[in-house]
Write a protein that binds this DNA or RNA. Structure first.
Length: 497
RNA sequence: GGCCCCAUCGUCUAGCCUGGUCUAGGACGCGUGCUUUUCAAGCAUAAAACUCGGGUUCAAAUCCCGAUGGGGCCA
């Protein structure tokens, strides 16, 4: 009787609920589904599970779409709106669920239940008091049609329950092997509030069948939901998809990733300035690796190299330090014009960059000298702020290098000033060699150790950046230009005097 | 509480299926050194793990059983 899968094409899906910010877990599940589909020439589908009318909001659906696009994970089907696929939405498919709900009711595989919340709660307490697992006792299973009709006519509140058979449910999980549950422990589950309000467990099963999903790849939190979904499939005569339950992404304390212990919204990572390629690379390594020492992967590489058999069973801690490292790696590798484009919004947002203040070229130079220090794009502002302000505020003591006297620091700055003033080309290379040889000359003159170039370079760098850490003085000077550089050195001389 | 899943350095993991080549490999992080005006980056280098107990076997990180621990789901 079971309807066979009609095609052998691989079809995967993710089914997020739009009830809050798009979750990082959704991103990773999407990634694995996408990779598996693509490497098998299959299709990846996005289906919005918005049957919960109270909690679902369009803005969250929009966010899911936006963030998946940002990550470069595209889906292959859906209503075609202006040349792009919209995701499927369960809220637009209520008639379909109704039909299947009616079928189950007619076949007496499901029934109306009129038990009140209070009744149920009391039973639960009683069962738990006796040390039993709470489960519905089946009170309404055999209500006659007359009573059901009467209750409904009277407007008594009700739900639709699915008759769970007392049997063992076995299935093969691509990642975990064979898993077995005893369904007799489950109790009859609520599958709908009414004919036009199906619940998650029911809608998923119907949609996965109608959308001909071949592989259900999802988080491990759904593992124990699987048997009841299989039972519903069987009752409806649907084929059983192949399951793969992914290990969870964990907090530092190994609990399921949660908001309380860090960022969980994809948009948080997006806004903080992580690159999508870094996030993808990081996430895929959480639970999978190719078995070689290779650690950097593009999405395209992954489509080739990913294999679901190599996915880990144990949960993986979402270790932000490693993400930061990878992000830094990608930032250092990014083409400078692209990286600059990505940094500009952050510079504007922090109020540093005013439209038209710098040429594109200048901005690229600023980003170039800052990038080795960047872990996230958002850090560009604090790393490069001195390029944008006209006056630097810093403590006089910061100018001091290794206990040098104020007078000596002043001499050092004047020495630098002279070198800068004499410079003809204002090329980075020239500035560097002139300042380096100048530093040695200065040390010789003052009787400082020859190699300790800090006597000349440190005060200069502070004068130009106002900071204890920054790019080198020649890099800053080069970007700043002669006029501004000299002005800043003069100011430093004033401060030290 | 019931059921299910899981278990190698602090973290991500290789190795496990097909026992010996494991003195357990790589990466992040941490430490040190080199480079260096600073901080990064880069390079080099150290420390750091098979949860425990039984069993099988000539031999177990690897196979089996149990315990412990962690997690998830249900309520």
């Amino acid at each position: 009787m079971t309807k066979k899968i009609q095609q052998i094409q691989v079809r995967t899906r993710i089914a997020p609920s739009p009830t809050g910010p798009a979750h990082i877990g959704t991103a990773r599940t999407a990634l694995f589904n996408y990779l598996f589909a693509k490497q098998n020439n299959g299709k990846f589908i996005l289906r919005i599970e918005d049957t919960d009318k109270e909690r679902s909001e369009q803005k969250w659906t929009d966010e899911i779409i936006e963030e998946l696009k940002w990550l470069g994970i595209s889906w292959d089907e859906g209503p075609d709106i202006s040349g792009e696929f919209e995701p499927y939405k369960q809220s637009q498919r209520l008639d379909i669920y109704k039909k299947y709900l009616e079928q189950l009711l007619i076949e007496e595989k499901a029934y109306y239940c009129f038990c009140t919340e209070e009744e149920l709660e009391a039973k639960r307490q009683e069962q738990m008091g006796r040390g039993l697992a709470p489960k519905y006792d089946g009170k309404c299973t055999h209500l006659s049609k007359e009573i059901v009709d009467k209750n409904i006519a009277e407007g008594k509140s009700s739900v639709i329950r699915f008759k769970v058979q007392n049997k063992k449910v076995k299935f093969d999980d691509l990642i975990r092997g064979q898993v077995e549950f005893d369904a007799s422990l489950l109790g009859d589950v609520v599958i709908a509030k009414n004919l036009s309000s199906p619940l998650y467990h029911f809608a998923v099963v119907v949609d996965d069948f109608l959308m001909q999903i071949s592989h259900v790849i999802r988080g491990e939190e759904h593992l124990s939901n699987t048997p009841r979904q299989i039972l519903i499939q069987e009752a409806l005569g649907f084929y059983k998809p192949i399951y793969a339950h992914l290990p969870l992404m964990l907090n530092l304390d190994k609990s399921k990733m949660s908001k309380r212990q860090g960022d969980v919204a994809i948009s948080d990572y997006h806004k903080n300035g992580y690159l999508p390629e870094a996030l993808i690379n990081f996430m895929v390594l959480l639970g999978w690796n190719p078995g070689t020492d290779k650690e950097m992967f593009t999405l395209a590489h992954l489509v080739k190299e990913f294999s679901i058999e190599k996915v880990q069973k144990a949960g993986a801690v979402f270790n932000v330090q490693r993400l930061d490292f990878l992000n830094g790696l990608y930032i250092r590798e990014k083409a400078i014009d692209k990286l600059t484009e990505l940094c500009i919004p952050y510079l504007k947002e922090s109020g540093l960059l005013v439209e038209g203040q710098f040429s594109q070229n200048k901005l690229q130079e600023i980003v170039e000298v800052s990038r080795t220090r960047m872990k996230k794009l958002s850090e560009i502002s604090s790393l490069s702020d001195f390029f944008f302000s006209n006056k630097l505020i810093y403590d006089k003591d910061l100018l001091q290098w290794q206990k040098a006297e104020d007078e000596a620091i002043k001499e050092s700055l004047m020495f630098s000033r002279n070198i800068l003033l004499e410079n003809k080309t204002w090329e980075l290379k020239d500035l560097e060699t002139e300042l380096f040889t100048g530093a040695e000359k200065f040390n010789l003159q003052k009787g400082y150790p020859e190699k300790n170039k800090g006597y000349l370079l440190w005060p200069l760098r502070v004068a130009l950046s106002g900071k204890s850490t920054s790019p080198s003085p020649f890099e800053i000077a080069y970007i700043l230009g002669k006029e501004k550089t000299l002005k800043l050195v003069d100011e430093a001389i004033k401060i030290i005097s």
